Every structure is written in C-alpha cells, then in structure tokens.
Simulated assay, not measured.
Amino acid sequence: MESPLLRTGFRRAIASTHASSQRQALACQRRWLATPTESSGREPVRAAQPIQFTRDDNQFARNKPAGGFSRRGPPRGDGPKSDILLSRIRILPASPSYFTATPRYTDDLLALSALLRKYQLLPQCPPGEAPRIAWKTWEQYKSEVDEPVKETRYNRLLEIIKRLNYIHPALMPEEVTTALERFKRILQPFLNKPKPIIVDNYGRARASGRRKSSTASVYVVEGTGEAVVNGKSLTEYFGRLHDRESAVWALKQTERLDRYNVWATTSGGGTTGQAESIMLATAKALMAHEPDLRPILKRAGTLTRNPKRVERKKAGKLKARKMPAWVKR
C-alpha cells in the first residue's frame, strides 16, 4: 500500500509541473504582446491623430467617395465650419438651472437680480409714490411655471420686482419694463376708476355707501336741511343720537346742514352700520355739488370706508376671542 507521505509528494510534484508550464506560457505571451521597439525591426507604434471637431468643406470634399457622401453624411451648418462631432458628443442644456428642481424660477430670480445690480443706482420715486401695479399671486405664478415654488421663495422674487418698480418712470430702462411685464396680472384693479358723480337735470346727486354689511343709496339736493331715511324722518328712524349725528356728519362738518336735503334708502346690518353707510354716501354726493369741500371731508374721515367687520364667536369660546374662566386657570 502507498503511504500517505508518498501520495502527498506525488501531488506536489505534479502541481509544480503545471505551475512551471503556466509561467512559461505567460512569459511567451508577454514576449509576443510586448511593445516592439525600433531595434526589433518592426514599425514603431505611433499615437493616433487628434480628433478635429471642426472641418471645412474642402476637407469634406477630399474625404467624400466618388459615388456619394461619406458615412458621416454631409456637413451641417451654413458656415464653412460646423461642429459636427461636438454637437453629437455633448448636448448643452438650454439653461444653467436645468438640473435644479425649479429651473424657470431660478432663471427669473437670476435675471431680476442681474437687472437690480445693473440699475440700482438710478433715481427712485419717493416712498409711496411708485406706480401702483397688481402683481401675480403665488398661486398664479406657480401654475404658470408649473414648478413646486414655495411661497417664501416667491416673496423673495416679489421684493426684487417691487424694488425695480421704484425706479423713476422717466428713467425706467426698456429691459426692466419688459421684464416686469411678465409678472403683472392680466386685470389691473388699480386702473379701474369710479364713475364721476354728476348732478342731474333735477339738481340731484346720487351716491352709494357701505359699512360692514349695510348699504345705502343717497340723493342730495339743495334745500332746507330735511333728511329722510327709508320714508321716515331722521329722528324717527334712528333712536340713538350718535347714529343721527353719524348720518349727517358730512353736512355738519362742512356747515351745510341747512342748505341740502337728503333722501336715503338703506338696508342690511344694524343701525350703526346703516348710519355710517349714509354718511359715506352723503359725503360723495356733496362733493358733486361742491368739489372744493373734498379736503374738509377727507380730514373729517367721511370719504374713507371703514372695512372693519364684527368678529364672530368661535366654537369653545365665550365670545370672538374670550376664553372660558377654567381655561385661564
């Protein structure tokens, strides 16, 4: 029987024979694949010619076969040189913000910032005297660009727009005007001017006023100081002295209580709201008779509508904002 020691020796001898044969084959392969030199009698290895990304028509004519165009096709472009290979190898995006989440917004922000840096030294309008323009809301802009623009980021854009709008209109550059046109609303509410109140053939001036949920329509005509509200006299319709004074406050401030008659129809809301709506309408109609009274009426506060409304009671509260006593503890 063969001993284990003899069997192991035979295995090692066979393995060494295979390893030596592999090393000889690898050396032979390296010798055949080695880079030839000039001393070996072979042609030296030369580097490939550089790629020409542009070529003229003469070179294309030399490379064109007799029967037609080359495999690359006819040269593109109108000029003598065309970037054929370059246009195929790399396609540049139309915008540097192409790979951002909001490319159109980023382009608008960069363009407006560049305009602001360029024209920031131009004279500006005094505070509050810039042209009144209604800009697009956040929802309108977001739906227009179709991008997930946050409201805070759009507010940053609006700050630059309003700063550019403060440039004096006489020195406003054309490119700034063109850039701001994109952010204007289609309908401008500031361009809507109310119809002028005129005195008709019967000597009447009609005006309307509102306060909270109350509305009033008033006719003012020269007379003896009579006031009628919904077919009743002023004292019969308004029980409180404060409401009666509010209704004719415009006539009292201008000292015209005994020179004009007032016919008013009012509806909605309470007595206080109806009285103040009559006051606003009376002041408007009075200016149709005497436009010079506008400064007095404006100082008296009769030409400004009070937009305040009653805040309704909330669930779980005693009033609009008053909390129960047990919550305060």
Results as ranks from 00 to 15, higher is better:
Q140G: 11
Q140D: 13
Y141C: 00
K142I: 02
S143W: 04
S143D: 10
S143N: 09
E144C: 03
V145D: 01
V145A: 10
D146Y: 06
D146W: 09
P148Q: 05
K150T: 13
E151D: 13
E151C: 05
R153T: 07
R153K: 14
Y154R: 11
N155P: 00
N155Y: 06
N155D: 13
L157H: 04
L158A: 03
L158Q: 11
L158I: 08
I160A: 03
K162P: 00
K162T: 14
K162D: 09
R163S: 09
L164W: 04
N165G: 09
Y166E: 12
Y166P: 01
H168N: 15
P169C: 08
P169G: 13
A170F: 01
L171P: 01
L171E: 12
P173N: 11
V176T: 03
T177W: 01
T177Q: 10
T178W: 00
A179T: 06
A179F: 05
A179L: 05
E181M: 04
E181L: 08
F183G: 07
F183P: 07
K184H: 12
R185F: 02
I186G: 11
I186Q: 12
Q188F: 01
P189L: 06
L191E: 10
L191C: 07
N192P: 00
N192G: 04
N192C: 12
K193P: 00
P196S: 13
I197P: 09
I197C: 04
I198R: 15
V199H: 11
D200S: 09
N201W: 00
N201I: 07
R204K: 10
R206D: 06
R206A: 05
A207S: 12
G209Q: 02
G209A: 07
G209P: 03
R210H: 08
K212L: 03
K212P: 08
S213W: 00
S213V: 04
S213L: 06
S214M: 02
T215I: 05
T215R: 01
T215C: 02
A216C: 02
S217H: 07
Y219S: 04
V220L: 15
V221P: 01
E222S: 11
G225H: 03
G225S: 14
E226Q: 15
E226K: 15
V228L: 13
V228W: 15
V229Q: 09
V229P: 14
N230C: 14
N230I: 03
N230P: 15
N230S: 14
G231N: 14
K232C: 04
T235G: 02
